[in-house]
Amino acid sequence: MTLMTVILFLYLLSAAGYIVFLFIQKPVLHRLGFGMLTAGFLAHTFHIGDEFVRLGFFPVHTLHHTLSFTAWTLAGVYLILKYRYRLNILGSFAAPLAAVVAIAAVCIPEVPTEYGHQLKSIWLILHVGFIFIGQACLALACGAGILYLIQDHAIKSKSNRFFLKRLPSLELLDVTGYMFIFTGFTMLTIGLITGFIYAHQVWGRFWSWDPKEIWSGVSWLIYAALLHGRLTSGWRGRRSAVMAIIGFAALVFTFLGVNIFLEGHHDKFTRW
């Protein structure tokens, strides 16, 4: 059994704990979910560090590695949130998502790829690190948005008491979502800027109309519009939740769809 399987197992246990918690609201369940996620995250941190040392560069050069790194940032960002907010229910979104991404990572075999010195650039590490942490924040913002829409519907329709009882207040979901979008957008911006610098070093230009670049730009604009709307004309609540979900869909397409359906200079990072 490889370390990655153990990590996946811990994530799955955590997801199970959080999902059962959604149905049976016993504190022991979300504590179990939290404990397992923490254990999984620590093991995962060790695993990624170990790969880094073994390979001599930041291990994000294949789809296996990028997915693994995505699961790690998702777990990490949720754990940080746990310290600041009492939103245990968001774990029912974050832990299963991390587990699903980890499953995908395990299923996709590691393939040896030739790589050049370009993978060792500090700008690349910063670019990938910031983008992925930003993505994890925006994934959780999407989760908060989904929970917001469910709770909004439960209150308006007056029929679904299952969610009404279990989900927190709309205000808390909205504020948490906003906080995630703000943080995620900042990370994404820094990630894009470091990406430009890296591109300039490697290809000699900041922007080359690569499909991935275009879609990153689209995602960035969606979030920029959302934040602008919130600050200037009070886009909060429902509309903010819907935008968070749309924005995240664009991000997922940028991450996976572009590599699968379109071509560009990022494709070797998702080769399998």
């Binding site: 709770q151 209150i155 989900l167 927190p168 207040s169 709309l170 205000e171 504020v175």
Partner: peptide, 19 residues
């Protein structure tokens, strides 16, 4: 647990809207 009078039910609901 859970409100069984009009005023308690109103507060319970309000707390699902406002934090």
């Amino acid at each position: 647990g859970h409100a069984v009078s009009i005023s308690y039910a109103a507060v319970e609901l309000a707390k699902k809207i406002f934090d």
